[in-house]
Write a protein that binds this DNA or RNA. Structure first.
Length: 890
RNA sequence: GGGCGGGUAGCUCAGGUGGCUAGAGCGACAGCCUUACAAGCUGUAGGUCACAGGUUCAAGUCCUGUCCCGCCUACCA
């Protein structure tokens, strides 16, 4: 054991344990079991992706929950898998192809899909091995992929079911079109970004008149598709023009001037050009006034033949330039005014989205949204933090039809068939045999489904739906869903709706929405911003456990969680601290082996430090369990950190050292027991390190023992044995005495090597007796003392430093070394602080209302506090007076 | 325009339902290589809890308003 390296080296130990866990099937959950079920489905990462910081946080938290519940004896299932991730993945493939000089369309659908599968097969293991490196205890034999046969069947089943319920329909409607990806997308996928644009003021002449109407637009190129000009019906400036005809510049077309209440009189010139085919509002105005929809763009964003010849073939942006130039030439451009406004961009490729009219498949989600709201109100789903609930309601209450088809190739092709003879539409699991018209010649819809449609089925499609499997019976609804709040609408809301639609039951009971990892400036970390930490590099540098601890520790309830490097550094130091504590214990156990089992320690005489550390451990167990149960992960991290470092290492191990040197090894055996239990508590956060140490510690028996278990992973979660207030109070006094002596030594610059005499005045018999027993034993371990005197009353020795702890007065004679000025300064500083605090406490207690209305307990506390402070104050005042006297003498 | 979150030590943040002398990590300063750990140990400094009111015996915590910062959301062309 002594050959354990002095410095904790994560690389040495993190590799081997995962293999053991896997080999022993520790992560596997049976579909049928006597244990209570607990299930989490992983938010499936992109099949071709790699682990980023968001995954690291998300999966660490899930692993904490799963490992914790597994240790508690639950039948804990963590269902893993990956997502085909539709458009994003296709875009990356397109870029790869572009490097080879091939375009998607040249390659053709079949070949393209072939390439995608090839790429999928090459990269699929990558993300999985990264999750394993992170320590994720997923049930890997259940791994799923959204394009698997089983899941594809679930997709078709869900589609047909919803179609038959009339919730899925086909329509031609104005939506968001991405000219780069050549597909329609939903509102959620459009990211409004503020950009510096212009307001172009353009003159439209009026037919048979000298009057001109000035309109303002940010998109002058769309005027090629104008089919009206609109003014507000009550706008006095334009009354005489309503019903007249405007002459559209550059196009040689006549367009009507109409009145519509949508027009804002205050904005721009109060006159609005209407392009029903390329603007959402104009589309609606067009509908109200039965205007022609004149589409001027090709799907990939170029001007089509509906525009005058000289514009055809230009890109959107070139066309804008040309239109502006031409208007200037005609003297039709009044002015250009800079204007900052939000422009929609496709969140996947960054292209400016084009509002356009095109045929699309939609899902009417409104009825399911209503059911989701009701289910949530009934408490069937709970959101944590609670504030997310109102975001959820707001979104659900204002939900719009979901465009579910994408004009892409990588995904689930819609199970819709058209009869090639009569064009009848059929939704079915397979190609229909025969049409109503008698024909049997069908073609399948070309479009694929929005990738979120299949992810929306994830909690039950992964468990074998539409089959009524044992998995579904046992694990659905799942227990918790853990993900970032940024995909509440994209994914969580859709899962709830589709869960209700397909299973008649919500997919999970609790949704825990954690924050997003941010940099020091509070900006969300993302690859595109270049401010991201690479989890794998971090793991290389600091180790997985240090990284995981830092993530959990950072995971406060805030929407953004900063993760400075120093935080990860602290995790590494913590790991090293634990490592060395274990090393110390193991080294000493060689000389003092635990007799038979740790059971022996329970009957051993319970010295103060043993009673104390057991009490503190019990408290830590309760606090940690409570924290994880309530998703306050950062609190669990902090509780464990404080206990392990500042109580167990700083104090208990120092006591134990002393005991061992006095040939009293019980304290050491208890140290081993406490560390063993703490390793179990810490295991969900730091799985590798805790396994390594747990394996080396004796853990055959003892309280909360994990006898017969081969891994901490499957050991039991510690149970609190109860706290011991008496031991804690006594120890607190002892600690204060020790700290005050250290403080005096430090501040008065007593040389390290010098021993000091300590005189303690302790008027109360009970405390004095306890001090007499313990102080002589404990003090030498913490500070160098030559002699300790404890008496009911004693006078302050000449030239001594002083500290007051409650009724205790501590004097340290420092005849040769004391600097009276320094001591005077030290005491008077404390005295001043006391005066302030005493005054405040006095004021509170002098208030009759306080005595009358505050709870008795609070009043008593305050009273005790005041008395304690007054005692100290009096003693210090006397000493200060004496010091001043002696200065005069000098 | 609405809504949400935040403003606490030099930095990053804790402080569930109001009640210990407001805490931690990092950083700073001083001193220690004390045989588990210098990735360590000991001590010290540092905060009128954004501002102004209010409720209360009692406010960092609850209410109102103001000022900053961030996010979400909305059709101002």
């Amino acid at each position: 054991m002594t050959n354990l390296p002095k410095i904790y080296a994560p690389q040495e130990i993190e590799g081997k344990w995962y293999e053991l866990w896997q080999k022993n099937d520790y992560f596997h959950a049976e579909a049928t079991s006597d244990k209570p079920p607990y299930a989490i489905v992983i938010p499936p990462p992109n099949i071709t992706g790699s682990l980023h910081i968001g995954h690291a946080l998300d999966n660490t938290l899930q692993d904490c929950l799963i490992r914790w519940r597994r240790m508690q004896g639950y039948n804990a299932l963590w269902m893993p898998g990956t997502d085909h991730a539709g458009i994003v993945t296709e875009i990356i493939m397109e870029r790869k192809l572009a490097e080879e000089g091939i375009s998607r369309t040249e390659l053709g659908r079949e070949k393209f899909i072939e390439r995608m599968w090839q790429w999928k097969d090459e990269s699929a293991g990558y993300i999985v091995s990264q999750l394993q490196q992170l320590g994720c205890s997923c049930d890997w034999e259940r791994e799923r992929f959204t394009l698997d046969e089983g899941l594809s069947k679930a997709v078709r089943t869900a589609f047909v079911k919803l179609y038959n319920q009339g919730l899925i329909y086909h329509d031609t409607y104005m939506g968001n079109w991405c000219p780069y990806c050549n597909t329609g997308i939903s509102n959620l996928e459009v990211e409004p970004i503020e950009i510096d644009g212009n307001f172009y003021h353009i003159r439209y002449p009026i037919k048979d008149s000298d009057v001109v109407l000035e309109i303002a637009t940010t998109r002058p190129e769309t005027m090629l598709g104008d089919t009206a000009v609109a003014v507000h019906p009550e706008d006095e400036r334009y009354q005489h023009l309503i019903g007249k005809t405007a002459l559209l510049p550059l196009c040689d077309r006549e367009i009507p001037i109409i009145a519509d209440v949508h027009v804002d009189r205050e904005f721009g010139t109060g006159a609005l050009k209407v392009t029903p085919a390329h603007d959402t509002n104009d589309y609606e105005i067009g509908g109200r006034h039965d205007l022609e929809q004149r589409t001027i763009f090709t799907p990939d964003g170029y001007i089509n033949e509906n525009a005058p010849d000289n514009y055809i073939g230009l890109s959107r942006w070139d066309c804008r330039k040309r239109v502006v130039e031409d208007l200037q030439g005609l003297d039709s451009l009044v002015k250009i005014v800079p204007h900052r406004h939000a422009v929609g961009h496709h969140d996947r490729c960054g292209t400016v989205v084009e509002p356009a009219i095109f045929p699309q498949w939609f899902m009417n989600v409104q009825p399911l949204a209503q059911r989701a709201i009701e289910a949530t109100k009934k408490g069937e789903v709970k959101f944590i933090p609670e504030r997310e609930t109102s975001r959820f309601y707001h979104w659900m209450e204002n939900i719009e039809p979901w465009p579910i088809s994408r004009q892409r190739w990588w995904g689930h092709r819609l199970p819709i068939w058209y009869c090639n003879v009569c064009e009848a539409v059929t939704a079915a699991m397979e190609t229909p045999q025969q049409c109503e018209c008698g024909a049997s010649d069908f073609r399948q819809e070309e479009d694929v489904l929005d990738t979120w449609f299949s992810s929306g089925l994830w909690p039950f499609s992964t468990m074998g739906w539409p089959e009524n499997t044992e998995e579904l019976k046992t694990f659905y609804p799942t227990s918790v869903l853990v993900t970032g709040w940024d995909i509440l609408f994209f994914w969580v809301a859709r899962m709830i709706m589709l869960g209700l639609g397909c299973m008649d039951e919500v997919p999970f009971r609790t949704v825990y929405l954690h924050g997003l990892v941010a940099d020091e400036k509070g900006q969300k970390m993302s690859k595109s911003k270049g401010n991201s930490i690479d989890p794998l590099e971090t793991i290389d540098t600091y180790g997985t456990d240090a990284f995981r601890f830092a993530l959990v520790n950072a995971s406060t309830p805030n929407p953004y969680v900063p993760l400075p490097e120093s935080q990860i550094e602290a995790g590494k130091r913590f790991a090293n601290k634990i490592w060395n504590a274990a090393r110390f214990i193991l080294m000493n156990l060689e000389k003092h082996p635990v007799p038979t089992s740790l059971d022996a320690t329970e009957t051993a005489q319970e010295t103060l430090e043993i009673a104390w550390i057991r009490s503190r451990l019990s408290h830590t167990i309760t606090a940690t369990t409570d924290a994880i149960e309530n998703f306050r992960f950062h609190e669990a991290a902090q509780v464990l950190y404080a206990f392990l470092w500042h109580e167990f290492c700083d104090w208990y191990l120092e006591f134990a050292k002393q005991r061992v040197s006095q040939n009293e090894p019980e304290a050491l055996w208890v140290a081993a027991d406490v560390l063993e239990q703490t390793m179990r508590l810490l295991h969900p956060l730091m799985p590798f390190l805790t396994e390594e140490i747990w394996q080396q510690l004796p853990h055959g028996g003892g309280r909360n023992a994990s006898s017969g278990k081969n891994s901490v992973t499957v050991s039991s979660w510690p149970e609190p044995i109860g706290e011991n207030p008496t031991a804690e109070a006594t120890m607190a006094t002892l600690m204060e005495v020790i700290e005050s002596i250290r403080s005096i030594r430090g501040e008065l610059n007593v040389p390290i090597g010098a021993s000091v005499e300590v005189h303690i005045q302790s008027p109360g018999a009970e405390v004095r007796e306890r001090l007499e027993v313990y102080l002589a034993q404990y003090l030498p371990a913490f500070t160098r003392v030559a002699d300790i005197t404890i008496a009911e009353s004693l006078s302050k020795p000449r030239a001594s430093a002083e500290a007051v702890i409650g009724e205790l007065a501590i004097y340290i004679p420092l005849a040769d070394i004391i600097d009276l000025d320094a001591e005077h300064a030290r005491l008077s500083k404390r005295h001043q602080q006391l005066v302030k605090d005493v005054t405040a406490a006095q004021k509170t207690l002098d208030n009759p209302n306080f005595i009358q209305r505050a709870p008795e307990k609070v009043v008593a506390q305050k009273q005790a506090q005041l008395e304690r402070m007054l005692t100290e104050q009096e003693k210090l005042a006397r000493s200060l007076a004496m010091l001043t006297e002696s200065e005069k003498e000098d």
